[in-house]
Write a protein that binds this DNA or RNA. Structure first.
Length: 283
DNA sequence: ACAAATTGTCGTCATAGTCT
DNA sequence: AGACTATGACGACAATTTGT
C-alpha cells in the first residue's frame, strides 16, 4: 500500500519529514529553553508547519489532515474515521480512533499516540496552577496520568523502537503482541504485553532477572547491601523510564502546539475571507 | 586551538503518590 | 501501614557551541 501526500502539488513523505527528536531538558520548566537549543540545529518548531492532504488509495477518497514539521516529528491528524492507515517505509499504523496523533522520527516509528477527542479542544489542560491544586505546591500529576487524561488508549513506547499497547475500557484483556518490522535494533523487536485486570506487565527482562536472590528454606534472604543494590538498580531504571515519558509528554505538547497553531491560522484565514465577503462593494 | 559557557544525560536521593 | 513506584532536584560528567 502506498500513500500519496500532496503539498502544493509536490509529493511529501510524512515519515521522512521527521528527524531529530528534540531532546528535552531535565525539567518541564526548562524544556522550552532546551528545545530552543535543539531547534537551532533544526528549524523553528511551529513556524514552518504546513497542511498536507494524504490521499489513501485503498481507503477510497479518505483524506487525512496532517501537520508536517520539517526536521521535527510529523503530526498526522485524521479528519474522519479512516482506519486502517498504512504509510510507506514499512510502517503500518492502525488508528482506531478519530483525531489521532501519530509521531514519527526519521524512518523508524518512535512514538505513537492515540488521542480520543471530539475536537481539538478536548486536549484537556492537565497543567493546573498551584492555586488550582489547592494553593500549595504539590507534585504534578504523573506523565502517565496526564497522557491518559489526554486520550482513551494507553500506548507505551519502548526505547529500542518497540511499541507496547494496552487497551482500556472496551479492550479485551489478554496477551497483546506488536511487532515492528523496522525497529532500530536489527531484525525488529517483539514485545509481549500481558494485560491483567487492566494492568500492563512487561514480559521481557525484569529487574529481578538481573539480581540473584538467595533462598533458604523458602525464605528470601537479602542483606542490607543487596537490598540497597536492588533498590538503586530499580530506581535507576525508573529514572530512565521517567525521563523517557517526560520526553514523550513534551513531544505530545509540541504536537498540540503545532495542531493548534495550524488550526488558528486556518481560522484566521477563514475570518479574512468571510470579512471580504461581508464588505460592501465600494465601486 | 583553547577556554568558557551551554546543554544533555545519568545516577542518586528524597519524598509524594499508589498499591496491596 | 508498609512496600513499592514515579518524579523533582541535584551534582557529576561528557559533548557541543561560542567567543577570543
Amino acid at each position: 500500500m502506498e500513500s500519496m501526500v500532496e503539498e502544493n502539488g509536490s509529493a511529501v513523505d510524512p515519515l521522512s519529514a521527521g528527524s531529530q527528536s528534540g531532546d528535552a531538558a531535565p525539567a518541564i520548566a526548562t524544556s522550552v529553553q532546551s528545545l530552543n537549543r535543539t531547534q537551532q540545529q533544526t528549524h523553528h518548531l511551529v513556524a514552518s508547519t504546513s497542511i498536507v492532504q494524504l490521499t489513501l488509495p485503498t481507503s477510497g477518497a479518505t483524506q487525512v489532515q496532517s501537520v508536517i514539521q520539517p526536521n521535527q516529528q510529523s503530526v498526522i491528524q485524521t479528519a474522519t474515521n479512516i482506519q486502517p492507515v498504512a504509510i510507506s517505509k514499512g510502517n503500518v499504523i492502525l488508528v482506531s480512533k478519530p483525531n489521532s496523533v501519530i509521531q514519527t522520527a526519521q524512518a523508524s516509528l518512535q512514538t505513537l499516540q492515540v488521542v480520543e477527542t471530539g475536537s481539538d479542544d478536548s486536549f484537556s489542560d492537565s497543567e493546573e496552577s498551584p492555586e488550582q491544586r489547592g494553593g500549595i505546591l504539590t507534585r504534578r500529576p504523573s506523565y502517565k496520568k496526564i497522557l491518559n487524561d489526554l486520550g482513551g488508549g494507553e500506548i507505551t513506547v519502548i526505547p529500542a523502537g518497540t511499541i507496547q499497547i494496552a487497551t482500556q475500557g472496551e479492550g479485551v484483556p489478554g496477551l497483546h503482541t506488536l511487532t515492528m518490522s523496522n525497529a532500530a535494533t536489527a531484525g525488529g523487536a517483539i514485545v509481549h504485553t500481558l494485560i491483567v485486570n487492566n494492568k500492563t506487565k512487561n514480559l521481557g527482562n525484569t529487574v529481578s532477572d538481573n539480581v540473584p536472590a538467595y533462598t533458604g528454606h523458602g525464605v528470601v534472604v537479602e542483606d542490607a547491601a543487596r537490598k540497597r543494590e536492588l533498590r538503586l538498580l530499580k530506581n535507576r531504571q525508573a529514572a530512565r523510564e521517567c525521563r523517557r515519558k517526560k520526553k514523550e509528554y513534551i513531544k505530545c505538547l509540541e504536537n498540540r502546539v503545532a495542531i493548534l497553531e495550524n488550526r488558528n491560522q486556518t481560522l484566521i484565514e477563514e475570518l479574512k475571507s468571510l470579512k471580504q465577503l461581508c464588505e460592501p462593494k465600494t465601486d
